[in-house]
Nucleic acid binder design. Structure first.
Lengths: 255, 255
DNA sequence: CGGCAAATTGAAGTATTTCAACGTCGGTGG
DNA sequence: CCACCGACGTTGAAATACTTCAATTTGCCG
């Protein structure tokens, strides 16, 4: 594994990572003892498809994507993971997707056997793993709902809402400057096109269609401002999915 | 809950259901003591969206679908579940989707509190739950991969492959008569259209396009024969996902 | 400043949606 | 038993959206 990613130190700050806060000290000590922190550059592959993963990882910083290279050469992106998300298969089984960094990323890794041993000894850790998996399942389902829209603009609107709601607070992609809601798009147009099951050209047109209708402002390709949140939610469908409390907090601060 | 579904008896046959086989006898006895078997008719709703589910269920027979009614009146189907699949949230949290029967279905239900208590007492049961969730996650990811195809015929081909591979053996939807591979489509065209993110008209055209190209034969709308499996897999992309061993067994028996 | 990668725009071809009409099957009631 | 009805599937034709390929612009880095 040492040929991929740079080992950047031991487990400094592990206990600060959201899923680990609140674990008992002795367990944290055991986790830190077997933990390595590594960093990856943009596009670097962390795990290959069909590889038998020998470690379990948690994202400390940045964003990872789960992808699959299709037989016809197309790349499908089936998931994005942010700070605090777990990756790698906890139980045996080959990985059906590759995992790669989107931008700079840092991860904590644990040897899988040791991690699973700890899992059987500490119910708290087992529960943490279970919650991580349930979290992934929710994300996958939300994603499917977005993909269910026919029009690219609708899928894009859904993605922007997801960015606000799910990833906004954790990865600081959504923020409020000067009582305006700004979003950072953490992917290139090409990657996002794969994610939204379309092509970069269509995606670009969709961005500009939203801008022409006054729903967003494109400051740069990666920095947009949301002008009409409710219109975006209408486009995306299934408003309720995008409307949990902490998102409404964000919105209410627009004054 | 008694207004929904008919109570059809106690837990006869629970130990025969795939995920439960191999559990220790004492645990099975405890499970049977708190278990109820219920049956549902086509279209009947088993759990409402946003409801706090008070039970955990396992499908004994038939097929359930996970769906969501969009604000604009569209119905999105985000998952199909068959015999042996678990549903309901194991840990707290509202349900984001409704669950309804597709055709006749029978389920085993357990009061959630009692089930979770057993879960903490029996690691075997906890592991069973974990595996069920991982199974759902795999299904969701496969589904996303299929939805990622642009063309309706490609998504349909992917669905047909999924029918063979994932659900064929468990729900008897795929069978071999007279050395021909036959498939039962367990959904109406309208439902399948929701599932494949398209409309019934386009779906119908896709079925007939596959038939015109000789990949399938439409005996009735719900009974098709597969003529050219490898061409279907090419269309669906990501062959490897559709090619695990027991599926190849099925294929090899075509001789 | 030049060069490269990424994003955008244009134009033509293709696929899908939409609306409308028609056919088929199964059941219900005369 | 047959006629009718409704639900569902299929087909047709026009409108729309998307893909594809090519050309152009933009922004960034050496």
């Amino acid at each position: 594994m040492d040929n991929r990613g740079n080992r950047t130190g031991q487990a400094d700050g592990l206990k600060m990572l959201h899923p680990f806060t609140g674990l008992p000290e002795p367990l944290l000590a055991e986790l830190e003892a077997i933990c390595t922190r590594r960093s990856y550059a943009h596009g670097q592959v962390i795990a290959e498809e069909m590889e038998h993963l020998t470690f379990v990882g948690f994202i400390a910083k940045g964003m990872l994507r789960m992808q699959k290279l299709q037989a016809d050469g197309r790349l499908s992106i089936v998931g994005l993971m942010v700070e605090g998300d777990m990756f790698g298969r906890v139980f045996n089984g080959p990985l059906h997707f590759s995992i790669a960094a989107t931008g700079e990323a840092e991860v904590y890794t644990f040897p899988r056997d040791a991690f699973e041993t700890l899992t059987t000894e500490w119910p708290e850790l087992e529960r943490l793993v279970m919650l991580s998996i349930l979290n992934e399942l929710d994300a996958a389902r939300e994603w499917m709902l977005i993909l269910t829209n026919y029009r690219v603009t609708e899928r894009l609107a859904g993605f922007l809402m997801l960015l606000c709601r799910r990833w906004g607070n954790v990865a600081n992609l959504a923020r409020i400057d000067d009582s305006r809601l700004s979003l950072t798009i953490p992917l290139s147009r090409a990657d996002l096109a794969h994610f939204l099951a379309t092509r970069p050209e269509s995606l670009s047109r969709a961005f500009h269609a939203l801008a022409d209708d006054g729903l967003i402002v494109l400051r740069t390709p990666y920095d947009i401002e949301i002008q009409d949140l409710s219109a975006l939610m209408d486009l995306a469908g299934s408003e309720d999915l995008f409307m949990p409390s902490h998102f409404m907090d964000l919105v209410s601060r627009l004054s």
